[in-house]
């Protein structure tokens, strides 16, 4: 294929449904305790990639995701929606990585997929809201970056023109390849799964998923090699272990405090007209309002 787009997508704990046991003692997230979802802005990133693929002949989309075994779900979901394939970066040695260590691992995976034209990430992941991994990965790959992308204005084999969403307006920018794009939530929503692709890729699995399911897909996979979702470990990436996981993460959690609410002596009111009248009168008399 002549035009390769790599999408970085992450499986995240659904922070909208957080329970009490969400944090571990060492200050890292206890992912097992939470439902896992496709990071919302990474779906916007996938849609942007699909739109680019729609307008360029012979373009392909590869997903790269780093996470535990079950994060392969992200790759399968992306394939159902139109991606061509994906790679799961998984290894215990990645555990505890901050954004610097994560971007190091991701950049090695992207390197392995050279030549590529575009790397597309979400703006930020909802579990940390850092928005750091995209720019950090771009720096490591020595790519220019176009952040907060909202739409593709024009694209061909030589360059891409994008609309960026800023606090107080927009910017239209143009770049040649290769480049990194990060995508904002105001970009178009991702298209749904394609039924034909779902049928075709229903059995796409990583090695570990196959082992887990204890089913013998060998015959099927020999017939349909495209059902293989490769896993890459630290060794596959030739990574320098010192730059991964906790040792590769310069940020340390010094402590975690439970939020103790400084209780004020609050006045409690019912919603009766008379009590609200008294309150409004007091606010006026003390010049807080009016």
């Amino acid at each position: 294929m002549s035009f390769r787009i790599i999408v970085l997508a992450k499986q995240v704990p659904d922070t909208r449904n957080v329970g009490k046991d969400a944090m571990k003692e060492d200050g890292t997230v206890n992912r097992a305790a939470l439902p896992a979802i496709f990071n919302p802005e990474d779906l916007n990133a996938l849609e942007l990639a699909l739109r680019i693929k729609d307008s360029i002949k012979d373009a392909e989309i590869q997903i790269v995701t780093m996470g535990p075994f079950r994060a392969a779900e992200i790759i399968r979901e992306s394939i159902f929606r139109g991606a061509d394939g994906g790679f799961l970066i998984t290894d215990r040695k990645f555990a505890g990585s901050d954004t610097l260590a994560t971007s190091y691992a991701l950049s090695l995976a992207v390197e392995k997929l050279r030549p590529f034209d575009l790397v597309i990430a979400g703006r930020q992941a909802i579990d940390g809201d850092t928005a750091q991994v995209g720019p950090q990965t771009a720096e490591k790959l020595n790519l220019p970056q176009i952040t907060y992308t909202e739409d593709v204005i024009a694209v061909d084999e030589k360059s891409i023109t994008l609309k960026r969403r800023l606090e107080r307006g927009i910017e239209i920018v143009k770049t040649s390849y290769p480049a990194m794009i990060t995508v904002h939530s105001s970009a178009p929503e991702c298209r749904p799964r394609n039924v034909k692709r779902m049928m075709k890729f229903k059995h796409a699995r990583t090695v570990h998923e196959l082992q887990d399911e204890n089913k013998d897909y060998t015959e099927l996979r020999n017939r349909c090699p495209y059902l293989d979702i490769p896993e890459w470990t630290v060794a596959d990436l030739n990574a320098d272990e010192v730059r991964l996981g906790l040792s590769g993460s310069p940020t340390k959690v010094k402590k975690i405090d439970n939020v103790v609410l400084a209780h004020k002596d609050s006045v409690s009111l019912t919603n009766s007209e008379s009590e609200i009248e008294a309150l409004m009168k007091e606010l006026i008399d003390t010049h807080i309002v009016g």
């Binding site: 609410l261 004020k264 019912t270 009590e275 009248e277 006026i284």
Partner: peptide, 28 residues
């Protein structure tokens, strides 16, 4: 509520109209 000076227990759609009404009544 723990950090509030005043806590009004009730439905927003109930309370807010009353606040508007009472403010208008007393505003100078």
């Amino acid at each position: 509520n723990a950090i509030a000076d005043y806590v009004i227990v009730g439905d927003v759609m109930d309370v807010v109209p009353k606040m508007i009404k009472m403010y208008k009544k007393h505003a100078k």
